[in-house]
């Protein structure tokens, strides 16, 4: 790999821009895609690699190209800078999520409690408007406080987020669904919420609850059977 290619790839990834590193095999000639000077078929194949998040070797005009998809990290919005979030956030970062913690309560949302993590002290509805942008976003609410969780869930349900989860007991969750129904969300929308969030592994401690939430999140992202919600 030439220094120019490495620098361009590094710059794209730092800017969180989705790119494909195309390597011709076996010669090793490389280019970054999309690129206007590249044949349309190769650019199209690169688009597919990014959309499906799948790196693969393709054959075009008898040439073998390895298309290595570099998507920015999928986003995880954690609402509530609470104790469970302190366990959840570093584990999520270790799984490759780009994590943002949202909590307007400044005594909770401190960089001391969340070192090296993007923290927003905006109200959840404002923060969510900027954060929950696409299908590569997951939202998990942890505060147990309707004032904070409800606006976040309301916004999440209006987004394309692929995963929405809310912490709280079944009783709390039933009350939460009733409030969201009053905000105009129908049953199909409400069924998108994993609540109580997390796989049932009888978790007790904060790190155990974090594992249960992240296991469900990975299962949803990878399309595992266990992530399919039972019919309500």
């Amino acid at each position: 790999m030439t220094p120019a290619t490495l620098a361009a790839l590094t710059a794209a990834r730092t800017a969180k821009r989705a790119v494909v590193l195309a390597t011709r095999l076996p010669s090793g000639e490389q280019r970054l895609l999309p690129d206007p000077a590249t044949p349309a078929a190769l650019n199209a194949a690169a688009g597919t690699a990014l959309a499906t998040e799948t790196s693969a070797t393709v054959v075009l005009d008898g040439q073998h190209w390895f298309l290595h998809a570099f998507n920015p990290p999928p986003r995880l919005v954690v609402v509530g800078a609470v104790h469970i979030a302190q366990a959840l956030v570093p584990m999520a970062a270790g799984l490759g999520f780009g994590v943002v913690v949202v909590d307007p309560r400044r005594s909770f949302a401190t960089s001391e409690r969340f070192p090296g993590v993007e923290v927003s002290t905006d109200w959840p509805d404002e923060a969510m408007a900027a954060l929950a942008r696409d299908q590569r976003t997951a939202v998990v609410t942890l505060t147990h406080d309707p004032k904070l969780d409800d606006p976040a869930l309301d916004r999440a349900l209006r987004s394309e987020a692929y995963f929405i989860g809310a912490l709280g007991s079944r009783k709390t969750h039933a009350a939460r669904l009733a409030r969201l129904r009053e905000l105009g969300h129908d049953e199909a929308a409400l069924a998108r919420i994993h609540g109580p969030v997390g796989l049932d592994i009888a978790a007790v401690t904060a790190p155990e609850i974090a594992v249960s939430i992240l296991a469900q999140l990975v299962a949803a992202r990878r399309g595992a059977a266990i992530a399919r919600k039972p019919a309500a």
Partner: peptide
């Protein structure tokens, strides 16, 4: 999901 251990970034750092 992206690899949490960013091999390429680490390689670039070693090279630098």
């Amino acid at each position: 999901m992206t690899e949490a251990e960013d091999v390429l970034a680490l390689a670039a750092q070693w090279r630098s």
